[in-house]
């Protein structure tokens, strides 16, 4: 255990936790915005897979990481249009349509990968960008301020999402249609348009999450996300539909994962129980939520399609 409590190991663990948390945070923030408007999207994982593949393919063929992030964003927006049309205009049951999107993303990204790439080929990874002055701070400098731009973006989006939801007319509309669409409608807020926009933003974030994942790893393979999108949905519930809470959930998940991996590498966790230790992030997430015992209520109109009858 003493090996763990050295500065270099702790700093590395914190850095790993933040890297691990980045894609979860981006996806969960997007899902938060969607759910606040009353739309559950279980298809996040599918969107992440599609955007991750297309981002990877872009880097592979052009070498341009920025273009890759842009392509991922675009894929997220396209999937957003599709999901918004399905849920807002066709009023499809959200649980099932989301799973439909997930299954499609899983299959199509796999298919494209096999047709266009085949054998996994490494691509350049996102470089770390040091923030002047802050990066040189002792202890916190390395884990917090020597990260990739994708990580800064993810954490920077947390306060921006708070402002968006709480301080803008759009955010007010989003919360209104998520709580009481009938009332919002009678006040002249377009439920359809508001939800459409919220879904687009949410899926764009999911697209960025896919890009963050693949650009941090520098490699793609079928089902790269391994259910990350579903965990991101769970983190929205953990965070009680609040961006800071969602960030707390993503960080908790990342910290526990990183610590377990570090302890495995140090031999603190023996090989014979490595799988039991692998349960830790999920157990601690549930445990933390029991302790926090926040009796918050979900957006009242969550999963309920709206039609003016």
């Amino acid at each position: 255990m003493d090996d763990f409590f050295t500065t270099s190991v702790l700093v590395a663990t914190a850095a790993a936790a933040i890297r691990l948390a980045t894609p979860y945070l981006l996806a969960a923030l997007g899902e938060t915005i969607g759910q606040r408007s009353g739309v559950l999207n279980l298809g996040v994982d599918g969107v992440m897979l599609l955007s991750a593949f297309f981002a990877y393919w872009t880097v592979l063929s052009t070498g341009n990481l920025w273009l890759a992030a842009l392509v991922a964003l675009l894929v997220g927006l396209i999937m957003g249009v599709i999901y918004a049309v399905i849920t807002v205009f066709f009023e499809a049951t959200q649980g099932i349509s989301g799973i439909g999107i997930f299954i499609f993303g899983l299959g199509f990204s796999d298919l494209m990968f096999r047709q266009q790439v085949g054998t996994p080929k490494p691509v350049p990874r996102l470089p770390s960008v040091n923030i002047p002055f802050l990066a040189d701070l002792p202890y916190v400098g390395e884990p917090l301020f020597q990260r990739s731009l994708m990580t800064y973006l993810a954490f920077g989006l947390v306060p921006l999402t708070v402002v968006l939801l709480n301080k803008t007319t759009f955010g007010l509309n989003v919360r209104a249609v998520g709580e009481n669409p009938q009332a919002a409608d009678s006040l002249g807020v377009s439920v359809e348009r508001t939800r459409f926009a919220a879904i687009m933003i949410g899926n764009a974030f999911a697209g960025l999450a896919g890009a963050a994942l693949v650009l941090q790893l520098g490699i793609f393979q079928p089902n790269l996300t391994q259910g990350m999108g579903f965990i991101a949905v769970a983190l929205v519930y953990f965070g009680a539909w609040r961006p800071w809470g969602v960030m707390g959930g993503a960080l908790l998940y990342g910290v526990v994962n990183a610590t377990v991996l570090q302890w495995k590498a140090l031999g603190i966790i023996p090989v014979s129980i490595s799988d039991l230790a692998g349960m830790a992030p999920a157990i601690l997430t549930i445990g933390a939520l029991i302790l926090l015992a926040r009796r918050v209520h979900a957006p009242a109109a969550l999963t309920k399609p709206f039609s003016r009858h």
Binding site: S97, I99, G100, F102, F104, L106, G107, F108
Partner: peptide, 23 residues
């Protein structure tokens, strides 16, 4: 053809049929 084609197709079928009741 890769089996992933069938997976993608399953997703499309779910999406289309679930959207159709409203149409």
């Amino acid at each position: 053809v890769p089996s992933s084609l069938a997976v993608a197709l399953n997703g499309i079928i779910v999406i289309f049929v679930i959207s159709s009741s409203r149409v």
